[in-house]
Nucleic acid binder design. Sequence first.
DNA 1: TTGGTGATGATACACTGTAACACTCGGCCA
DNA 2: TGGCCGAGTGTTACAGTGTATCATCACCAA
Lengths: 162, 162
Amino acid sequence: MHDHAATHDHGCGGAQEAIARAERLCRERDLQFTRLRRDVLAAVAGQTRPMGAYDIAEALSEPGRRVAAVSVYRALDFLTEHGLVHRIASRNAFVSCGHAHTDGAGLVFLICRNCGTIDETTSPEVEDQLGRTLAKVGFKPTSRILEVEGECGACRLRSADD
Amino acid sequence: MHDHAATHDHGCGGAQEAIARAERLCRERDLQFTRLRRDVLAAVAGQTRPMGAYDIAEALSEPGRRVAAVSVYRALDFLTEHGLVHRIASRNAFVSCGHAHTDGAGLVFLICRNCGTIDETTSPEVEDQLGRTLAKVGFKPTSRILEVEGECGACRLRSADD
DNA sequence: TTGGTGATGATACACTGTAACACTCGGCCA
DNA sequence: TGGCCGAGTGTTACAGTGTATCATCACCAA
């Protein structure tokens, strides 16, 4: 397959997998994977675009059940804390984690200006250089966010077709 | 002095310099550096921590003059557009640009968890590796944000003193 | 049973950002 | 001179994002 490690494994099919991984992780760590948390994860994992907390709340609400945004935020706190979803700071929105990795280190988010999808990769080289740069200025990192906006591969091909 | 290129030149003294640079830039590009824009820049440049738009509005308001947040946002739009201040996405806040560079490319923001100050550097090496990584996955970048949270050099020394 | 803990529901609120409209001020042109 | 136009600003209202607080429920342990 393609030569880049991390690509869309969100998108409909990805939701099943994301939930399976979450269940496994919660069993291992003795955490509660409740219905709300599962539903929030499913909603986020069913999209290739980032969802706002209020979007999620609306998506989960139905005639019989009203899910308030605050509940969604709590579920998202849980999910982000355990690396199952990520927050996209530049969009105030959330995406499900496409990786199987445990710690959220070294992630790069690729946000397409055209189609809005978010892809996620890691780059040890970037990580490495960044670590070196930080060491040089005497800064001890605990977390970092790296978000790139631009045009994704699919959209570039599509616009080349014109 | 220290071996890292970019360090605090905000902080009180930096405000004068930031304004001087802004005036120069606006003259060059035939832009209006109005009182409001100058005051907003001064407020931001007088701090080493990021300021929220509402903080700025409050700081500029006095008995005789009420500055509404929306006015501050407009001034900030202008200032960010021309690279005079930067928005810190992870904090919904703004800092004045410590560099003399023109385009906002390759910036790294260092946010201290302890004292809250924000430092700014650039790293061609990180930039370079990131470009390579993006090329590999076929993503064409237009802008990026890179924000690192952790402990700054000053705070590390201070905590080592204990 | 009682008490504690973690998750959820519900309301209210604080903070962040934008839309829409009116007004002023300066420059420009008839 | 007078009128027009555009940029900047003031003002109000509102949309979107996130948190504080308290009540309730389920579950487990003493």
